[in-house]
Simulated scan of single mutants.
Amino acid sequence: MNTFTNTRKLHATPSAVFAAMQDPARLARWWGPSGFSNRFDVFEFRAGGRWLFDMIGPDGKEYPNESVFLSIEADRQVVIQHTCLPHFTLTITLEPSAEGTLVHWEQVFADASFANAMRHILEPANEQNLDRLSAEVCLGNVPSA
C-alpha cells in the first residue's frame, strides 16, 4: 500500500483554511510534524510553481525538500508533487461542511516498499501536520506582520 489518507474537520471556512496554505509565512508555521520548523527558499504558489525549502527537525537537522504545485484551485484543492526523494503526490482537498471545512489529505508514494517501511512514521506525522494546520486556522493565529 502506498497511499495515506487523513480527514479532519476544521471549524473554519474553506477560504480561511486556503489562506493558511497560500501565505508562505503561515504555511512555514504549520507545515510538517510536531517539533519541525521550515525555511522557504522558493515559494511560487501557482500551477507549475516551485517550492524549495528545508524542514528543520527538533534536533536541528535540515531536510531539503523540492516540490512543484501541480494544480491549485482557490478555496478547494492544492496538489503538490514532491520531486526529490521520496517521491510522492499530496492532494489537499477542502470540502465545505456544516461545521466549516472537511480537509482531505491524500499522500501517494511512488515507491510502495518505502511507504510501507515508513508507515509507522508517516501516519502520525500526517496527523501532526493536520493538528498544526488546525491550530493555525482555528486557534486565532494570524499572519506575521
Results as ranks from 00 to 15, higher is better:
110 A>V: 10
101 T>P: 14
124 P>W: 09
3 T>D: 11
96 P>Q: 02
96 P>I: 05
66 E>A: 14
138 C>Y: 08
20 A>W: 07
51 W>K: 03
31 W>I: 00
72 I>V: 15
119 R>V: 00
21 M>S: 01
37 S>M: 10
108 V>F: 03
53 F>E: 02
55 M>D: 00
96 P>E: 00
70 L>C: 08
66 E>L: 06
52 L>M: 06
129 N>K: 00
49 G>D: 01
69 F>L: 05
118 M>R: 07
123 E>W: 06
12 A>H: 08
116 N>S: 13
131 D>I: 00
122 L>A: 00
81 Q>Y: 10
102 L>P: 10
29 R>W: 07
61 K>L: 14
91 T>S: 09
67 S>V: 00
57 G>E: 12
97 S>E: 14
136 E>R: 01
68 V>M: 01
27 L>V: 03
72 I>H: 07
71 S>P: 12
16 A>D: 15
18 F>R: 02
96 P>G: 01
134 S>G: 04
103 V>E: 02
42 V>I: 14
33 P>G: 11
84 C>E: 08
22 Q>P: 13
86 P>Y: 10
132 R>K: 14
66 E>H: 13
41 D>K: 06
33 P>N: 08
60 G>D: 03
39 R>H: 14
49 G>Q: 03
17 V>P: 13
144 S>D: 15
48 G>F: 08
48 G>L: 08
22 Q>E: 15
69 F>I: 00
68 V>H: 04
21 M>N: 04
83 T>F: 04
90 L>G: 00
121 I>A: 14
28 A>W: 09
9 K>S: 05
113 S>E: 15
9 K>L: 15
97 S>T: 13
109 F>W: 11
22 Q>K: 13
78 V>M: 11
75 D>L: 14
26 R>D: 00
73 E>G: 04
90 L>Q: 01
25 A>G: 15
102 L>A: 00
1 M>F: 10
119 R>C: 14
126 N>P: 11
129 N>V: 04
71 S>N: 12
114 F>S: 04
117 A>Q: 15
135 A>T: 05
86 P>M: 12
123 E>C: 07
56 I>R: 07
134 S>W: 06
129 N>A: 15
61 K>I: 10
118 M>P: 09
91 T>Y: 05
80 I>V: 15
17 V>S: 03
91 T>M: 03
120 H>L: 12
79 V>E: 07
45 F>V: 00
120 H>E: 12
41 D>M: 06
114 F>H: 09
116 N>H: 08
6 N>F: 11
35 G>R: 09
86 P>C: 12
53 F>N: 01
135 A>L: 12
33 P>I: 06
77 Q>H: 06
40 F>C: 05
13 T>V: 02
100 G>K: 10
93 T>G: 05
141 N>F: 12
141 N>M: 13
67 S>W: 02
76 R>N: 08
76 R>V: 05
125 A>W: 05
76 R>D: 01
44 E>D: 15
114 F>A: 05
119 R>D: 14
136 E>A: 07
67 S>E: 11
5 T>F: 09
20 A>M: 08
70 L>D: 13
23 D>L: 04
16 A>P: 13
